[in-house]
Write a protein that binds this DNA or RNA. Structure first.
Length: 486
DNA sequence: ATGTGC
């Protein structure tokens, strides 16, 4: 076979299950790309179907083949995981794996990834999948993993430590229900939000007293690790101006249809990523950190700091957004701030034992109200957990609509279906404004690339996990003014 | 989600 032919393959790292699609030309090229994409020293490659090892070249590999990569271990073909159904306990033998989804479609691949977590991580006691469960790199997004309290797995929290959602009541008003002239003007005023702030402002903000909505720890780290504070980032992060479309509970005294609300979704930017890398790089993907070791103490302290940093990041993003619109930032009040990606020590209600609850894309149901965002141009929901002590759902809820397809698939499909990207700046469904000058993101984050938020909410209501307080309508979704990656 | 390499 000609050595310059390009072949597209799917590689899966064993035992972690992390996978990636690569375009490769030679075996050396393949090993190199595996190392960089999977973040391990890739040493051996096998054909997934037969277990045969690739020793000299890619002559046995053709387009779209599945390959297994290991760091040195031999790979032997095993039976695939048994088929499963959602809304039931999948494997009660050792680890209970439960997926809460009825109306929402959860891909088999995501469920297989969840079962893989149960199989390969020691000391796991319970796993829950939320209705927005979808495929991740190795661990699916939209799940909660409870382990023995003696161990923490950084990989089960991921790189965006502290990522979450702030819901802020502003003093902005819209006099007419659809004052589009005002919204167009505000959209134009949203400038400079992607710029990094001066060191002095960042340092001062990290050391300020902040109630958001409760006291947030001060953060004391070197500015070289802080420069992104106050910026939204990319991917599914955004700031959205909303109004209340339906208020189902008039007893909520801090909610008023007269004012507009800000929803901020962002995390710890590259800070969290550096922390994950520090604890996983070259040490295997599954490494647990054991209580009593220095690594555990250092990771937990950095994790907590990243969580505080992410909260302050959301606060500063909201401030900057309101400043663009000429608002006094002191007039805003944060009603909800939750983490989607973090680990907490939790007392289980069933047997008084403790677990480390790792949330990877899941909202807490044990700290009060949460906002569950839809996809771009769809409603978000302010909800209240019915029982703050609900072990059967892992003390958690869905954190959003959940992707229905990969980013690459979405880009390919929607750039073909909607070639005029400018038209995506006003959403088809609710006529909301979208600020996103990154064309790739416009397609990757297209609403049709996500599951239906109403199905996710229905699943949680039917499972008696939440009651809906308010339905929020998007007015302006701000993603980025940066144009790179086009 | 992110920084980095091709």
């Amino acid at each position: 076979m000609a050595s310059n032919a390009k072949i597209r393959v799917t590689v899966t790292l064993q035992p972690s299950g992390k996978s990636s699609v690569l375009i490769v030309q030679t075996l050396d090229d393949l090993l190199r790309q595996c190392s960089s994409k999977l973040r391990v020293k890739a040493r051996r490659i096998f054909l997934a179907s037969t277990g045969e090892e690739l020793l000299t070249d890619l002559s046995k590999v053709s387009n779209d083949m599945k390959l297994i990569v290991t760091c040195g271990d031999t790979y032997t073909v095993t039976n695939p995981p048994s088929t499963t159904q959602t809304n039931s306990i999948i494997d009660s033998s050792k680890v209970s794996v439960q997926v809460i989804a009825n109306r929402t479609l959860v891909e088999q691949e995501a469920i297989d990834q969840l079962k893989n977590v149960a199989r390969i991580y020691p000391h796991v006691k319970h796993i829950w999948g939320m209705p927005d469960l979808h495929v991740g790199q190795a661990t699916p997004i939209g799940c909660v993993v409870a382990t023995e309290p003696s161990v923490v797995y950084p990989e089960l929290i991921g790189s965006d430590i502290g990522c979450g959602m702030s819901f802020v009541r502003t003093s902005l008003r819209l006099v007419y229900e659809d004052d589009d002239r005002k919204l167009s003007k505000w959209t134009k005023q949203l400038q400079g939000l992607d710029d990094y702030l001066p060191k002095e402002r960042i340092d001062e903000f990290l050391q300020s007293d902040l109630q958001w909505p409760t006291t947030v720890n001060k953060v004391n780290i070197d500015h070289s690790e802080n420069e992104q504070l106050g910026t939204i980032g990319a991917g599914n992060h955004f700031v959205e101006l909303q109004r209340i479309e339906e208020l189902y509970d008039d007893k909520e005294e801090d909610l008023s249809k007269d004012y507009l609300y800000l929803l901020v979704h962002s995390g710890s930017r590259s800070l969290g990523e550096r922390i994950l890398r520090e604890f996983c790089k070259g040490k295997g993907e599954l490494r647990g950190l054991e209580k009593g070791t220095d690594d555990y103490d250092i990771y937990m302290s950095k994790h907590d700091e990243a969580c505080a940093w992410a909260k302050r990041n959301r606060a500063l993003i909201a401030q900057r957004f309101l400043t663009c619109l000429g608002q006094m930032t002191t007039s805003a009040q944060c009603l909800v701030d939750i983490w989607h990606n973090n680990v907490v020590l939790k007392d289980l209600s069933s047997d008084n034992s403790q677990v480390h609850l790792h949330r990877k894309g899941a909202a807490p149901s044990d700290t009060g109200r949460v906002v569950i965002p839809g996809s771009r141009g769809t409603h978000s929901y302010l909800v209240e957990p019915i029982d703050q002590n609900q072990e059967s759902s892992g003390y958690s809820l869905a954190h959003g609509a959940g992707r229905a397809m990969s980013r690459s698939k979405a880009h390919q499909r929607f750039s073909g279906k909607y070639p005029d990207s400018d038209r995506l700046r006003i959403t088809e469904t609710l006529d909301s404004h979208v600020v996103c000058d990154d064309k790739q993101l416009l397609y990757e984050e297209h609403p049709e690339a996500y599951k239906t938020i109403d199905a996710v909410i229905d699943d949680l209501v039917e499972a008696k996990l939440i009651r809906v307080i308010a339905k929020m309508r998007p007015l302006i979704t701000y993603k980025t003014r940066l144009t790179h990656k086009e």
